[in-house]
Design a protein around this nucleic acid. Structure first.
Lengths: 231, 231
DNA sequence: TGCAATCTCAATTTTTTTCTTGTTGTCGTC
DNA sequence: GACGACAACAAGAAAAAAATTGAGATTGCA
């Protein structure tokens, strides 16, 4: 029986992660030796909030969703993770446990790299470290944005923001909205499912969007941006 | 905001794992220092086949399902994991990646212990090591049984076995069958969903079981055992 | 070659999960 | 104490997923 996690030696060379281009052959070897490839099925948990983080994930293809879990089963969706992105960068240098969960929205091919290997290579190769840190900072900036959102804006502004955010993925994934239920959208916005349903209807009535089954078409982006800004 | 993974100092003392009674206070400290508690929601992945295994899980409450994933999305369910059991024992001393997945059937409270800590304590404390190994061997024996099953028996025998197995949990979980779809049962038996449906009907016609919605009542255990034996 | 033990596929029914809507309740602010 | 911004609850409708059934394939073995 062939295992799902069969090694593919040329795999690491083909991936579209600019930071790996920075590595010397020896460093590449180190990373290669500490990696494994995993196929996550739709719905699988990639990282679990509170669990030990011993590796980082590099997403090769497929989409996943990063979220934090609150008490009593509540969920706040933070971002959609696309191919070419890392999960768990913050755990390379600090934080022994994941402080968020992530789940495959579609089938996801990822490769896992032992965090010790990344830490080692970073110390040896400044350019690599620079790129890793840059990526990490970009992710963090988004986090602040989300926090800003949920702290200071109210429903309308947050929903506009959610829609604008998900819509940015439409270029690469025209069917992106198909992957999200009303509850998912509510969890991005930080409101109840019922409120999300009502709010979307009201946005449609105001001519901001068109609801077409699960798909959502933004018909008045400037106005949505305005709503997002005003809060 | 209170985090879900809050430490509960007295937690480790209350659990029903006989092997932890073997530890000296210092060893207990070592284990405590290397553990974290996680609440898995229904459907969450506890371990993912192919991912690095840096810790073992001790299930405090809730049920989960251990399975292996084959090519093209096929699944073979191996066992149901109950409170008081470990996941990942085989990875303490060898095998850096999980060779099976497991998923929460109900909400599961687990605690995670760094595998290095377990390895250390095992070396210091022979009695502890003995108990850990004993548990591991018991699990392994079951694995051989399952293998035996799928290699030499055919549909009827395997289904009888699946039913007898799941039924053993009825004492502690009277509603155990509610948690499983026909597909789940098929995946325990190693047949297609359609075959499982038909086979269950035929078992019912033969007076071996009663199908009551999702619940299954074994009405002729001796005969089922006979079928399981004959294969 | 033919049969038994399955799987595959497609169509239908049933069950479960989402979605939706209306109503009422809470909480902070003016 | 009224109002706005939501959450909570409940109930019905709609959509999605699971279960069921029947009719061929397929495969290995007698």
């Amino acid at each position: 029986m062939k295992t799902i996690t069969a090694d593919q030696p040329e795999f690491i060379c083909n991936i579209s992660a600019p930071c790996f281009q920075m590595l010397t052959p020896e460093e590449m070897e180190l990373v290669k030796a500490s990696k494994t490839q995993v196929l996550f099925r739709k719905g699988d948990t990639l990282t679990k909030q509170g669990a030990f983080a011993s590796y980082i994930l590099f997403i090769v293809d497929g989409l996943s969703r990063q979220y934090i879990e609150g008490e009593s089963g509540r969920t706040l969706n933070l971002r959609i993770i696309q191919p070419g992105e890392f999960i768990g960068l913050s755990h390379v240098f600090a934080a022994p446990v994941y402080n968020y969960s992530s789940m495959a929205i579609t089938e996801c091919r990822a490769f896992l790299i032992d965090k010790a290997a990344i830490a080692n290579v970073s110390q040896q190769n400044g350019t690599f470290a620079f790129h890793i840190i840059k990526r990490y900072c970009l992710q963090n900036a988004n986090l602040y944005h989300t926090l800003q959102q949920s702290a200071f804006k109210q429903m309308n502004g947050r929903m506009a923001d959610t829609l604008l955010y998900i819509d940015t993925l439409k270029t690469t994934h025209p069917d992106i909205f198909q992957y999200f239920s009303r509850k998912d959208i509510a969890d991005f916005t930080g409101i109840t499912t019922e409120s999300a349903v009502k709010l979307l209807k009201s946005f449609e009535k105001d001519g901001l969007i068109i609801l077409n089954e699960k798909d959502i078409i933004l018909t008045n982006r400037p106005m949505l941006e305005e709503i997002s800004k005003r809060g």
